[in-house]
Amino acid sequence: MSNIIEVTGVTYLYSRGTPFERRALDDVSVGFRRGKITGLIGHTGSGKSTLVSLLNGLYKPASGTVLLDGKDIWESPKEISKIRYRVGLVMQYPEYQLFDETVRADIGFAPRNLGLSKEEIEERTLRAASFVGIGEDLLDKSPFELSGGQKRRVAIAGVIAMQPDVLVLDEPAAGLDPRGRREILGGLSKYVTEGGGSIILVSHSMEDMAHYCDDVVVMGGGRVIKTGSVAEVFSDKDALHSAGLDVPASLRIAEGLRERGINLSGELYTPEGVAEAVIKYIGGGRK
């Protein structure tokens, strides 16, 4: 099976059976490919965060199934914590979850819960820290002494230390400066290429999606509006607009050029792609 996670017909209701009942997901079906980075994009309140909380069994769907490696994760509800080790979820603003005395101990929290040996815990801690660019000099500090960006990275390392098959990140770069974004997201690509895992990445940023993801899932109003490769999704302007999203800035520039009679070709959804296409266009014109 090429999909590591397969969601079929999932509906989820908040505050079920109270006057505040709200349908967050409505008959959602979507697959996430193994060994790829899949972007999950959508407007605020589109159901992205709810969907990711269903993937590791934090929430139980009202109807429908979530398959991990072809097996229903709710097959035996008592074993749900095992699913959580295999699908590592980094929630929004994960730095609030730090609690231990040292960075080392905090990253090692999940491996300790897994009941691993001391050496294994230490090894995983170091490896997770290196993925997110936390140097060994920081490991013995208190997590509360770190800067915001460093805390975020330590929190992400705390989930990576479980070495999950699928790493799910809800807005891992929200509120960080451009350099912080690049470092975190770049480190994640390494997790797929070097570690052989799969990643599901929730983001608002079309640019980040275009840059780091292989596939994109567009959500709106609790439904999946469009899925496909980055090129497929970003060429479907109507789907993006109906989800209340804009196309990436670089694609808008290419559109503007087209309106002025300059037809570019190539991967126009990243700044690099547009730059290349422009160079090709200019070069071609002079030939």
């Binding site: 959580r84 929630m91 609030y96 979850q97 609690f99 819960n113 989930v159």
Partner: peptide
Amino acid sequence: IMNAQKSRGADFSSGGLVKRAKALIPLLVP
């Protein structure tokens, strides 16, 4: 926070009294 710690394998609902009290530290500190 409970959900975040559960995602890291924290267990709030099993074990004896001492174990459960200890399990609350990752919740109470943050």
